[in-house]
Design a protein around this nucleic acid. Structure first.
Lengths: 157, 157
DNA sequence: CTTGAAAAACTGAGTCT
DNA sequence: AGACTCAGTTTTTCAAG
């Protein structure tokens, strides 16, 4: 899908405040409320905008501890096997297969270090997992979803 | 801040659709629109809800490549030094100090592998960085912000 | 893309439990 | 204290230009 400057500005505005009115967004980008709504509808339809979400402080909900866990798997383990297995843990908030020694990297949120430990134990017990290597997060330095919010477009036309 | 079941339900509803009307949320949780608004205002005031954001597909904006980079720093490097340094790169979407061999872990989003490489080069060139260890993401398996959306409360009262 | 009007939603004040 | 009702105002959401 093609995005022009207006689309990018609208997306930027909605990333900063997803509950802004169409009129407000229109003022920021120089469009009428109706025109903004039509573009937002189109962006949602096209899948560029997946949805709108409240941004909550995980600590406020009790998720005070984070960890990253490298997963070393048996030779013929498929990414889809890993995906299915780790998706069952609500504590696994992100997972990806990666290059390098490890096969996958998991991002875990838990209530405390003991909780992290129990989750890792259960993950390590899965049949295709050979071993794990965990790092507990000491302090979070940066946390954004997508660069756009700060930087505009990656393709600096 | 104390959160009761109603607050948690409202947060859940807003995480699923941050543009839902107060009346809609009220129907889901069994409250009037006004009562919902008052609680949402309170949750925002308390900092439990930080804001509302559009969820965009990074690929649609051109950020098609991800990498994780472990940072090994000089002995007396402070977390705040790392934070300041990496915050200048829009490509660094997450960063944390961690336990283990590495001092910090960065999550990078870029337009392509070449872009990742250039960013890592610039990060590696920073004075306090001794060496880096990068993993390119092959495929993303799981990606959520906070467990709550799927699991309810971490403290199963 | 804009305008304009009808329908829906927001939001504050007052009232009740 | 917290939730409900009600009414004025704003916003959304169409159609037509």
């Amino acid at each position: 899908m093609e995005l022009d400057r207006l689309d990018r500005d609208i997306i930027g505005a909605l990333m900063e405040d997803a509950r802004a009115t169409y009129a407000e967004i229109g003022q920021q980008v120089g469009l009428s409320a109706s025109a903004v709504k039509r573009r937002v509808d189109r962006l949602r339809e096209a899948g560029t905008i997946t949805g709108f979400s409240a941004v909550v402080a995980p600590q406020a909900l009790g998720w005070t501890t984070e960890a990253y866990v490298e997963l070393f798997c048996q030779g013929k383990t498929k990414p889809s096997d890993i995906a299915l297995a780790v998706a069952r843990f609500p504590e696994v908030v992100a997972a990806a297969t990666i290059t390098g020694e490890a096969d996958a990297l998991l991002h875990i949120r838990a209530t405390d270090v003991g909780h992290v430990e129990r989750v890792i134990e259960r993950i390590a017990a899965m049949p295709f997992v050979v071993r794990t290597k965990s790092s507990i997060v000491l302090s979070r330095l940066v946390d954004t979803a997508v660069p756009t919010a700060r930087n505009g477009s990656p393709i600096t036309g």
